[in-house]
Write a protein that binds this DNA or RNA. Structure first.
Lengths: 232, 232
DNA sequence: TTGCTTATTATTGGATCCATAATTTATGCT
DNA sequence: AGCATAAATTATGGATCCAATAATAAGCAA
């Protein structure tokens, strides 16, 4: 059976993320519709959304093009994420944590600690960390009660390299991954501490700095930007 | 003659901004298409874009709804703008100003000073300030060479109250407007100073603080959020 | 051969049609 | 009378059609 509605959107997005459609490549409605086995309509709708997400651009009057991202763009997107999540953290600290939020965050930190305890990582551990990490970040974003921030983060996350949960496992760099995540976990603990104490400014600064971890590992791996694991 | 393509999008957006379509109101394709004298297709496309922009939400399975914004949302959106423009300013300071950028910014500051010289404002002066203000902000954003920041700001600007150039002239508060703009002008000068000296962190802080001016005037006017002049 | 104009082709945007799914209304049963 | 279920209406998503326009190819002239 053929793809439909939102599936078309997510499918095209995935194709871009995975590099199946290369950056810079031109996209026309009809070939893509044929390839996906649907009519032009859902593709047209998806193009508008993807344009807004920043994954597609309109080079001229006709047709869309997969956007190309520079190293500077990657830095930028991660700074944006840091800034936005920083705002969320500060707002949350200022308004105070409710019990369920506190429990969720404590749980994420606890789970992170036990995961890191054995001192090294195998592939599955990184997947596990990814779950814990996303939970930690999303809990803060959701609890901060800041819809515009949440939305801005969601849109920014569509840039493949800037997502909280973009995860590509690279077995060659498992050691580096472990060290990075170890550091990220320490930062999570620090953020939680600031949140509990209601120290908004500190929570914000810590969160901003936290986003930089991914940045500092971007060049080191010598991987294409899209393939970097920014799951910190 | 009827509206077309992008016109439909901008028309609907304007209707929301102007309050012609009220926050919370449900929007269906057919009535709106009829009202605008077009078919469902351009309306459908516009809905997707407006959803991404955050102006429309999908309450259930069927239909869209004009999003309602709380005071907290307004604060949020302005904080976001400050954070994003702050990043742009820092990046610009770090990479240095080229000559044309420097000239544009100097010109904006100079124009602002002469506009404020007479000590009071009439309506046309506010319109004039709006032009100068938008030029100052956009110059920094464009020159910062930070496409993701530019995009994030553009999207955030679609929230009616968070736009750099959302301008509603309220003659009742011309005095308050003048004072606010006087303050904003001082901040523009400070930002330019930091940019020239290459003081990235300071430029960022100043820019963030600058965005707060609008926030502090939000409540004071006793106007609906949509109608506030945030042209600072 | 090169540049310009014209003609052809292809792609996009808008309109309409159809099928599906959701909402609302009506009817029947407890 | 109230609730539940069923039927009818209405809106949405997808497909297709048509017209307009942009891109490209061909042909003509310098």
């Amino acid at each position: 059976m053929a793809l439909h509605t939102t599936n078309v959107l997510t499918k095209i997005r995935a194709m871009i993320m995975d590099g199946e459609i290369a950056p810079g490549e031109k996209l026309a409605e009809i070939p893509l519709a044929d390839k996906l086995g649907v009519s032009r309509t859902p593709v047209r709708l998806a193009f508008r959304t993807l344009e807004q997400e920043g994954l597609l651009i309109r080079p001229g009057k006709r047709g869309f093009q997969v956007r190309e991202f520079s190293t500077s763009d990657i830095q930028c997107a991660l700074e944006i994420r840091g800034a936005l999540e920083g705002i969320a953290a500060r707002r949350l600290a200022e308004q105070g944590l409710d019990n369920t939020t506190l429990e969720k965050l404590k749980e994420a930190v606890k789970a992170g600690n036990s995961l890191l305890q054995k001192g090294y990582f195998v592939e599955e551990d990184i997947e596990q960390w990814n779950i814990i990490n996303v939970a930690f970040h999303n809990t803060i974003i959701d609890a901060s009660n800041s819809a515009p921030v949440r939305d801005a983060i969601a849109r920014n996350n569509h840039l493949p390299f800037a997502s909280v949960n973009s995860l590509v496992i690279n077995t060659k760099v498992l050691d580096a991954e472990f060290k990075k995540i170890q550091f990220a976990q320490v930062q999570h603990q620090a953020v939680l501490g600031a949140l509990i104490k209601g120290e908004g400014a500190r929570a914000e600064n810590l969160m901003r700095e936290h986003a930089q971890v991914a940045l500092h590992y971007t060049d080191a791996f010598g991987l294409p930007a899209y393939k970097i694991n920014h799951s910190i």
